[in-house]
Design a protein around this nucleic acid. Structure first.
Lengths: 141, 141
DNA sequence: CTTATATGAATGAACG
DNA sequence: CGTTCATTCATATAAG
């Protein structure tokens, strides 16, 4: 067992699941501190492990529910039974995003779609902006 | 593998991290355009990915710092009963990850009964030993 | 040992 | 900007 990953003890898992059962979903930093302190009685643990545990548990609960709903929907509309499916229908793709300029007010920047054939006009005039000279930046796939 | 999410190449990450190391935090729309043009040499990328990258990187840096401070603060100030308080060599100053900071709220302890269940006392009586502070609501975002 | 699954960890994307 | 969510990567553990 390499130390790269937290291996929760059964006691730790029991405590976390009980807290989750009681309705705790996104503990605050303070809550995480206290939970971590308590769980450290059963074994080494860091705050981020508690944080990740709740994030993952909630997310996977949500995904299971979503898949279940989608599963029945699929059954209803297609009479199709099969593997569990992932994810609901995504949002319409936006090719722009709102950005805040460094001068303090919002601005909308339209992002041109970099298609499979990127335009070659004025390609590397920009390189002077970032003189990247230290790491191995001289490679390309 | 769906195309919904930008998959940065190692070269792209190296460039972005170098820019960040050099102090760039909130690039303007114009800078984002240039960076995007440069990074597109290593793979498909949109401007919003650059925008999000800096937003996330900066936010997580600060969150890490904030949580570290909160960590030491908690060690120093909390006088809760049943808490373990180390005075010498506190803890591995391992890094925390992003998590909600509770904006200085304090003292309101929750985790009491929620919903129709009248009594929820279960084998985990130990949970009462570390009451969790919560800003406002016990559950539901 | 190999493969499959469960889950810790990370991060892109986006929300309020 | 801090926070939250969805997806993906990595790996400990179980199944074969």
């Amino acid at each position: 067992m390499s130390n790269r990953r937290w291996c929760p003890t059964p006691e730790q898992v029991m405590v976390l699941e009980e807290l989750y059962r009681r309705g705790l979903r996104t503990p605050t930093a303070h809550q995480i501190q206290k939970i971590t302190a308590h769980l450290s009685l059963y074994g080494n643990i860091q705050g981020k492990s508690v944080f990740y545990w709740f994030q993952n548990h909630k997310a996977r609960d949500r995904q299971k529910l979503r898949n279940k709903l989608l599963f029945y929907q699929t059954l209803h509309f297609q009479g199709n039974s099969g593997m569990m499916m992932r994810q609901t229908i995504p949002d319409p793709p936006k090719d722009w995003v709102m950005m805040r300029s460094s001068y303090g007010h919002d601005s909308v920047m339209v992002m041109d779609n970099l298609g499979p054939t990127p335009t070659l006009n004025q390609p590397l005039q920009t390189l002077q902006l970032f003189p990247l000279t230290s790491p191995a930046a001289a490679n390309h796939p």
